[in-house]
Nucleic acid binder design. Structure first.
Lengths: 254, 254
DNA sequence: CGATCCATTGACTATCGTCAAACTCAGTGG
DNA sequence: CCACTGAGTTTGACGATAGTCAATGGATCG
């Protein structure tokens, strides 16, 4: 079976055949399609199931009183959405589909059973949680200390790497079915400003977009735009650590 | 024993006497003082121990190539710093003391033993991780969608609640040994702008500062400044949920 | 009593937000 | 086949929030 969750987690661990079989079974029992903009889990709810994105694109988001939305994380195929429900009573944020998506539901009891009896699987889920936390921290760094241009570039680069990790990508082109307004909600910018930054990235020959298909034309240039390059002021340190800090960071994280 | 970690975790669970004894023992074995600005764990390292802040103030941070620093989270007494070391090879961020701090070291082996054999303790640590993740998400919301004034107000209010939860607080006054430059690194602003916003909060009678001691003079006003109030456009929903979204959020989280 | 670290001020700049309108394009129905 | 529609993208003019730079003031500490 072509299980994106297994593919993602195998960046970290090698599953036994039995574990892989169990995980395949896990995501194939109950599946459901969600339309674009449909909520999968809502803030304040407690769901008896956990959800895993199999195809499409979803996100974690919160709404502010004034109707503004902040997307805190994108969920791509292979990502579990809400493994915290075993501990926390209610969700402190919502999960929504951005594009039409296929999502697996797993009963919490079945999941709990797996976590208790299959240490390999439990470890992989723990790793997944920690990776998510790393991505959250990177996002804080991004919003706090990078300008709009770098932030957009960074976002695109991160999606490229993450999609590559689960194999849903053709070399440097990938489906990222998102509107500029969604991107604005994810980066903390306005749609208008996102548009301006995308134009700049296109003008500079770094990326191209045709509909929902994004192509990275110049990976090195995109890294540079995203502030991924080693700073030449730190060259002495770079002898020991040939890669830039940010480069290592994102690789370690993805 | 006066164990802030136990106090913090008992917001979530009630420890058995034995668990409490074990946790008290855990943090009293090996303790060390760190000076202000001293690193406790550095990005890229792998430490055999996990660390728990007992007094003072520390933070998770990352450095950018240009020397800019982003503080991703404050660690107050009771907070474990690096429980991820069981899974991840290296830290993807650094932990540093902001003020002189007392920190407990716990050998990873001892810790692992506890997590495997004391389910009550394992659950409490898992909860702690999830709470941290919630705080990270709230920070992303903050940086993405609130202006500087609200962001500073929010930060102060969050610290008030968190300090209250571990009991290191005199009603509405608390020690928050931080410079305006640190606050700038945590909120993604410049020190100059932080200064302007603090002046505004003081002018409006919401807070007062004497050295490192912060006093909240007007809690409701501070909540309002932090955009904690229910939005009256949502009153219909507020009938079922009398609290504001943000209010619930932070309470659920703390 | 300098030295140092922080806080504060002011003048100037620029990044980004706001508003509003026009444009593109795919889908729909007469 | 061709308006009609609506979602999404693009443009431009303007405004405001926050950053930059540089100097001053205040407190604490050997």
């Amino acid at each position: 079976m072509n299980n994106p969750m297994v593919r993602r987690m195998e960046q970290y661990t090698r599953f036994s055949d039995e574990d892989r079989r169990l995980l395949d079974e896990l995501v194939s029992q109950r599946q459901r399609h969600y339309a674009a903009h449909e909520d999968i889990v809502r803030e304040g709810e407690h769901s008896p199931d956990i959800h895993i994105v199999l195809s499409g694109l979803a996100c974690r988001y919160k709404l502010l009183e004034n109707g503004n939305r902040q997307i805190m994380a994108f969920l791509i195929p292979g990502d579990p959405c809400d493994s915290e429900i075993f501990i926390l009573k209610t969700m402190d944020h919502s999960i929504g589909a951005i594009a039409p998506s296929l999502v697996a539901s797993v009963s919490g009891d079945v999941m709990k059973d797996l976590l208790l009896n299959r240490p390999g699987i439990a470890l992989a889920f723990w790793w997944s949680t920690l990776q998510d936390e790393g991505i959250l921290r990177e996002r804080i760094l991004d919003e706090g200390r990078r300008d709009a241009y770098s932030r957009i570039a960074f976002m695109i680069y991160e999606m490229l790497l993450r999609m590559r990790a689960v194999g849903i990508i053709g070399d440097t082109a990938f489906d990222f079915p998102i509107t500029q307004a969604d991107l604005a909600d994810a980066t903390g910018l306005t749609p208008v400003h996102v548009n301006r930054m995308l134009q700049r990235l296109r003008d500079e020959g770094l990326i191209a977009t045709q509909g929902r298909r994004w192509t990275v034309l110049d990976i090195a240039g995109l890294q540079r735009a995203a502030k991924f390059e080693a700073n030449y002021l730190h060259l002495d340190r770079a002898r020991d650590e040939p890669e830039s800090e940010a480069g290592k960071r994102l690789k370690g994280l993805i």
